[in-house]
Design a binder for these strands. Structure first.
Lengths: 170, 170
DNA sequence: GATACAGTAGATAAAAATATCCATAGATAA
DNA sequence: TTATCTATGGATATTTTTATCTACTGTATC
């Protein structure tokens, strides 16, 4: 659970998508690489990525050299777009009390205090895009921790090009 | 799931506490009444209320005439206080990527965009108290939907003072 | 004291979220 | 063509969250 209480799934989706946004446009990354970089369990990640693909946010390619890449420019993919894919319902007027009709004219006890922050979040998620990521922080990421680990492992188990394979055969 | 993705438990806690805040100071309400008013399953509510009691936000009294009431003035109970009881961790600097050290000097790819809204939420939860509830909307709540239902039911099954009892005996 | 009320405590059950596994199909390279 | 890579789709397992149940303790009223 993260501060604004994202589900694991939502958090994973954001991580994976932002990682894709860091790649040179058009370059595909495999699920394994993505998993290593983002610490998202491979199979679960694959499941999430499939949803991203059918939602049209990501393209996929099978076979050698295949993988995942953003389907459109980073600045055209908002956080809200991503969260929506993993089941986040944008209910600008959703009520903490579950009241069907809850608005300033007919507020639940928490309406006033809640709707303020809620609306801010909605707006933030809609206007913030994957482009924000690329801008600030690319250069801080020469190699993600997991990729480094994997590289070390791979080096140890000499000669095999993919660390994972080597690890399995041990 | 509500907009900012509160867990059911967190949502329930907020509802129950805000209901207590609406009562005349010192008046106790039973778990059943609270459950009717807030649509929180009784037993689950009881479990949550126990946590509120041990956290010192609520007082409880057993036996006839007993129930729950706020342990201190509404304005001294912040939403953050409530959320903390049900397991919400206030991590002003928690990282979407799960990086141990993630701050403006060493940011994860999402740090900049995320920390802004995250911090807003933290501040909001800390400065907003149950007093906000009482102020605005008390008069809009002559009788909550469930209480009304219960009263109707009770009236139908004539003569017994507690609707619940009557329903069970039917 | 007896009775009914109401919270406490902990066990158990059901449902949802998270994670893993396996058998396939498409794509590339040799 | 064959072997290898990689995503797809669906089944299954695990864990966590949510919900329910039962026995018990304290309190007030009669």
């Amino acid at each position: 659970m993260i501060s604004i209480n994202l589900s694991h799934t939502a958090e994973y989706a954001l991580r994976a998508m932002s990682w894709l946004a860091l790649l040179p446009a058009g370059k595909a990354v495999t699920a394994h690489e993505l998993s290593d970089a983002t610490f998202v369990p491979v199979h679960y990640l694959l499941k999430i990525m499939r949803q991203m693909v059918s939602a049209g946010l990501v393209t996929s390619a099978k076979g050698h050299g295949g993988g995942f890449a953003l389907a459109k420019p980073a600045k055209r993919i908002s956080y809200m777009n991503i969260l929506a894919v993993v089941g986040y319902d944008a209910h600008p007027n959703q009520c903490v009390f579950g009241w069907g009709k809850c608005n300033s004219a007919n507020p639940c006890p928490m309406h006033d205090s809640w709707s303020a922050i809620n609306q801010e979040f909605q707006e933030w998620a809609e206007k913030t895009t994957l482009a924000q990521i690329r801008e600030g922080t690319t250069e801080m990421l020469p190699m993600p921790p997991a990729a480094a680990r994997r590289a070390r492992k791979s080096a140890l188990e000499k000669g095999v090009s993919r660390g994972r394979k080597a690890a399995e055969e041990k």
